[in-house]
């Protein structure tokens, strides 16, 4: 098992990650809690947002004061962007901040569902790839559009399990499976995961990774939930690699019938 695990490396855009769990850093009570949860999750990559510095409070600590970008990979996102222009501006600023070329693109289309606007997303992906970015792309679970993203140079396909922050879990296993089967770049389920078992299900389907934020940050005990997700992702991956037994409609006895008294 150990040997197997060592060979099973998760690579995104040429970077090897120790964990298949990527965590978001929003919605925590404090930066200290964020840092503790990230540590407990075992994640080596975290998503971060780009926002204005609060100029009225000079002493306000920064996220990078609590989580060292040299030890944990920061994946800048474009959360809150509703047009290609906004997303591009955000990621160009993120790149300037510290040379980040590996980014997470999300262009939203609707305030109520935060559903991705795929037309703007594809447009932005093309431009970013041309500018030398490595783009992990948040998207719908439509296999055709996922393929289109891959054809346009996306470094990872990140279909939603269900709406962002909804906690509804994996709603369309069939589509996610189709995307996994056809993709040559990593498939990472992003958004909507509610609890640890949802992550296991995604990993058992054969996803390369999962991205979790709200399910950890909004748990009663976020740090304990971060640990639960760490183990859930490992279990799901092992289960996928092990290959599950076949399903049967009738029983098959586990004990041999030979020598029955």
């Amino acid at each position: 098992m150990e040997v197997n695990l060592k060979k099973d490396i998760f690579k995104v855009a040429g970077k090897s990650l120790k964990s298949r769990l990527i965590v978001g850093t929003g919605k925590y009570k404090s930066l200290l809690e964020t840092a503790k949860a990230v540590k407990a999750s075992g994640a080596s990559m975290i998503t971060v947002a780009v926002r204005r510095v609060n100029i009225l409070d000079k002493k306000k600590p920064l996220l990078s004061d609590y989580i060292d970008p040299k030890k944990t990979i920061f994946l800048p996102n474009t959360a809150g962007c509703f047009t290609s222009e906004e997303a591009l501006r955000t990621l160009r600023l993120a790149r300037e901040m510290g040379g980040w070329k590996l980014v997470k693109l999300e262009v939203l289309g609707d305030k109520k569902t935060l559903y991705p606007n795929m037309l703007e997303t594809i447009k932005s992906t093309k431009i970013l790839v041309k500018e030398g970015f490595k783009v992990m792309v948040y998207c719908t679970d439509d296999p055709l559009l996922a393929k289109k993203l891959e054809d346009n140079g996306a470094s990872a396909i990140m279909p939603l399990a269900s709406p962002i922050g909804s906690g509804l879990g994996l709603q369309n296993k069939v589509n996610i499976s189709l995307i996994i089967k056809q993709s040559r770049v990593p498939v990472i389920v992003d958004a909507g995961i509610g609890t640890a078992s949802d992550a296991t299900i995604a990993m058992e389907l054969g996803c390369d990774g999962v991205l979790i934020n709200s399910a950890i940050a909004q748990a009663n005990k976020p740090i304990l939930m971060a640990k639960a997700f760490r183990d859930a992702v490992i279990s799901g991956r092992n289960s996928y690699l092990a290959g599950r037994m076949e399903k049967n409609y009738f029983a098959t006895a586990s004990s041999p019938s030979e020598g029955l008294i």
Binding site: G24, A49, V50, R52, L63, P76, M97, I164
Partner: peptide
């Protein structure tokens, strides 16, 4: 327009300029 770090020292500000300073914060 994004200003490269090496230009911070030489770029002077004048009346009516618009400046945005951004950082990384927690996000999903």
């Amino acid at each position: 327009v994004i200003v490269p770090k090496v230009m911070f020292k030489k770029r002077y500000l004048k009346n009516n300029d618009r400046l945005e300073i951004v950082q990384f914060i927690g996000g999903g």
